[in-house]
């Protein structure tokens, strides 16, 4: 298990996410805003590619191709001297960790990937065994923020008291490499802890807290009814727990809740008074960010205007 005192705040490669970029770009700008405020040394590189995770879990990408693309991104981190790869998305997190473990432990994989690099004249991408560690070099943004929770609480400018907040932790962060997550995978509390430090009224447990969001990669597209059934179960239990705000740590989950909540309301003839945002957007707000110019709430499907005015943020 990762220990909080070992979470780095230097040399962070903030790993861009394809779904953050095109659906909720405000998650990225909120993260860089919060990182700057908290004095975290990070880099965003336009050489970094997407992790292939969507393709992998759409059953299209194979493990070797995914590992080769990951090795290229590891070279980007190495060349820039920012080797603490920190993701905005839980799929990027688990995909990169697995690729790194394979490159270190499986000689055939490493040799194959490296020979492809050399044959293409891309010798600078060659991956040296154990040049990165699959535990110590890979983080999710939520871990970095958790390591700064006290400071975030101290700098918080918003009165969140009385706001019922619940967390949806992303499956691929804590269920795949569960030994490496911070805390107990049967009851993840990373987001809860950060929200608490800002004085929110946190609902630590609700029915089905650890149930998937329902997106299931291709499921929302290919098995839409099944996918929405699962999401509805969670929305119902959040409603029963009287939750006002759900905090997320993965753009895929956020799409599933924020974009599909109105769809479920329509199809099931129900109504949820619940809004959604990423934990980085929440922290940025707490640290004084502009809801439009930094948090980018404009791209959300469930409008946040009423919620923001309730907590005294002018829109």
């Amino acid at each position: 298990m990762k220990q909080i005192e070992n979470i780095p705040d230097q040399g962070i490669l903030l790993f861009k996410s394809c779904m953050v970029s095109v659906e909720y770009p405000g998650i990225e700008s909120s993260t860089t805003y919060a990182f700057s405020k908290l004095g975290i040394d990070y880099l965003v590189s336009d050489e970094q590619s997407c992790c292939t995770g969507l393709g992998y879990y759409f059953d299209l990408f194979d493990q070797m191709s995914t590992t080769a693309i990951a090795a290229r991104n590891f070279a980007v981190a190495r060349k820039n001297g920012y080797t603490n790869i920190t993701t905005l998305c839980s799929t990027c997190y688990a995909i990169n960790k697995k690729a790194c473990a394979l490159l270190n432990s499986n000689d055939e994989v490493r040799l194959n990937v490296n020979s492809v690099f050399k044959e293409a004249g891309l010798d600078d991408l060659v991956y040296e065994q154990n040049s990165l560690d699959d535990v110590d070099n890979f983080y999710h943004v939520v871990e970095i923020l958790l390591s700064k929770a006290k400071e975030i609480g101290r700098l918080n400018a918003i009165d969140f008291s009385g706001v019922r907040v619940a967390a949806h932790h992303a499956c691929h962060y804590y269920k795949i490499q569960s030994d490496d997550m911070m805390g107990n995978p049967n009851h993840p509390l990373l987001i809860d802890t950060i929200a608490k430090s800002c004085g929110a009224d946190v609902v630590e447990w609700y029915e089905d807290k650890t149930l998937t969001c329902g997106a299931g990669f291709s499921q929302i597209h290919v098995n839409r009814d099944l996918s929405l059934k699962v999401t509805r179960v969670k929305l119902e239990s959040l409603k029963n727990a009287g939750v006002d705000l759900v905090l997320h740590m993965c753009p895929n989950c956020q799409i599933q809740y924020d974009r599909y909540q109105p769809v479920i309301e329509k199809e099931y003839g129900t109504k949820y008074n619940i809004v959604h945002m990423n934990i980085a957007q929440f922290v940025a707000l707490a640290l004084g960010a502009d809801p439009k110019k930094v948090c980018g709430f404009k791209t959300h499907s469930v409008p946040l205007d009423d919620f923001l005015s309730r907590i005294g943020v002018s829109v």
Binding site: S21, E28, S29, M64, A68, R72
Partner: peptide, 26 residues
């Protein structure tokens, strides 16, 4: 407006990703 750049990757004209996927057999 959010101060973010383009979505696409910059690979300095080396066509790195295509070359890798080609070489790996994708």
């Amino acid at each position: 407006e959010l101060g973010l750049g383009t979505v696409n990757v910059k690979d300095s004209g080396r066509g790195e990703i295509r070359a890798i996927l080609e070489g790996i057999g994708f």
